[in-house]
C-alpha cells in the first residue's frame, strides 16, 4: 500500500476477509473488532461561529468499518460537528484525525488525498445542477483516477445502478424527486469507493419507504465494502436500523452526553435526556 499517511492515493483497496468481514448489525461492542485501527479520531474539538461556541471539548473515535450515528435534538450541533470533522469549517480548538492525518496540520496535498478517501452525502444531495447524473458521478472518476471516459461511464452507470437509479443517467438533478437526488448524491459520494462515508440527515424529508430503502442501501454498502460511516440523523427508526453506535449530543452541555449501541442507550441509560430522546418523550418544562 503506497500512499500518504497510510492512505492509498485516490483509492482504498481492501483485503477480502474470507470470513465475510463485518456481518449483521451487532458489533462486538464495547470491545469492537480488536485489530480495527481508528478511521476517525476527534480530540477536544471545539466548534464556534464567531463568539458563539456550539460545541466544547468533544472527544470520540470511529473504528474502521463502524457505523456511528451522531444524534441529538435540533440545534445541538450535529451538522456543525460533521462539517468541522470533514474540514469545511476551521476548528476553534482541538484536533481531528482522519485515517491518521491531522486535518488542521495537513498540507494542501495531504488534505486532497485524505478528501479523496472519503465521500459526503449532503442533506440536499448537493448535485451539480448543470450536470446530468452520470456527469455528476463520473466527475471525480475522471479527475482523480486514470480511467478513460468510457470506463468512467461504465463505473458511473454501475454506481447509479447500485442506488437503484439505472436508466436515469441523462436526467438533470432538477428532474428528480428529493429521494432520488439523495440516492444520486450517494452514488457520487461512492464514486471513488471511499473508505469513509459521511451522511448529513440522509432520511430527512423522505417518505418512510424511501427512507427504509436508503437505510438498507447504507447497510449493504457497509457490509459489502467495509465502509466506515458517520451519519447525522435524528430519525429513530434509521438509528435502530443502521447504527452500530450512537454518539449523542446535547445543546445545554455543548457536547456528548452518551455513547453506545442504540438499543443499550434506549433500555439502560439513566440520563433522562437520552431516555426521552429514544422514547420520543417531550421534555418536561
Amino acid at each position: 500500500m503506497g500512499g500518504t499517511n497510510g492512505i492509498e492515493q485516490g483509492q482504498t483497496r481492501r483485503r477480502i476477509d474470507p470470513s465475510g468481514g463485518i456481518s449483521g448489525r451487532e458489533y462486538d461492542w464495547p470491545q469492537g473488532p480488536p485489530a480495527a485501527p481508528l478511521a476517525i479520531k476527534v480530540e477536544n474539538l471545539t466548534a464556534a461561529y464567531g463568539e458563539d461556541v456550539i460545541l466544547k471539548d468533544v472527544n470520540f473515535s470511529v473504528k474502521r468499518g463502524e457505523v456511528v450515528v451522531i444524534a441529538g435534538g435540533s440545534g445541538c450541533g450535529k451538522s456543525t460537528l460533521l462539517k468541522h470533522i470533514i474540514g469545511l469549517y476551521p476548528l476553534a480548538g482541538g484536533r481531528v484525525e482522519i485515517n491518521g492525518v491531522d486535518m488542521a496540520a495537513a498540507s494542501d496535498r495531504e488534505l486532497s488525498v485524505v478528501r479523496q478517501g472519503f465521500g459526503v452525502l449532503f442533506q440536499s444531495g448537493a448535485l451539480f445542477g448543470s450536470f446530468n447524473l452520470l456527469e455528476n458521478v463520473t466527475l471525480p472518476l475522471l479527475d482523480f483516477t486514470n480511467l478513460s471516459r468510457r470506463a468512467a461511464n461504465l463505473v458511473g452507470r454501475a454506481k447509479l445502478a447500485m442506488v437503484n437509479l439505472a436508466g436515469y443517467e441523462n436526467h438533470l438533478p432538477s428532474e428528480l424527486s428529493g429521494g432520488m437526488q439523495k440516492r444520486a448524491g450517494l452514488a457520487r459520494a461512492m464514486a471513488l469507493d471511499p473508505a469513509i462515508l459521511f451522511f448529513d440527515e440522509p432520511s430527512a424529508g423522505l417518505d418512510p419507504i424511501t427512507a427504509a430503502e436508503l437505510d438498507r442501501l447504507i447497510i449493504r454498502i457497509n457490509q459489502a465494502m467495509g465502509t466506515t460511516m458517520v451519519i447525522v440523523t435524528h430519525e429513530l427508526a434509521s438509528i435502530y436500523n443502521i447504527a452500530h453506535r450512537v454518539v449523542m449530543l446535547d445543546k445545554t452541555v455543548k457536547g456528548i452526553i452518551a455513547q453506545g449501541p442504540p438499543k443499550e442507550l434506549r433500555d439502560s441509560s439513566s440520563d433522562p435526556r437520552v431516555s426521552d430522546f429514544f422514547h420520543r418523550r417531550p421534555a418536561e418544562r
Binding site: 468481514g21 445502478a161 436508466g167 436515469y168 443517467e169 436526467h171 449493504r220 467495509g226
Partner: peptide, 26 residues
C-alpha cells in the same frame, strides 16, 4: 467468490445494469 466480495458483487444487479437510459443524451 466468498465473504464481503460476494456481498459487493451482489450490489450489482445485472438487470439494472442493462437498463437503457430513460431519456436520450441531450
Amino acid at each position: 467468490l466468498a465473504g464481503s466480495a460476494a456481498d459487493l458483487q451482489s450490489l450489482l444487479d445485472p438487470q439494472e445494469l442493462a437498463k437503457p437510459p430513460l431519456i436520450p443524451e441531450a
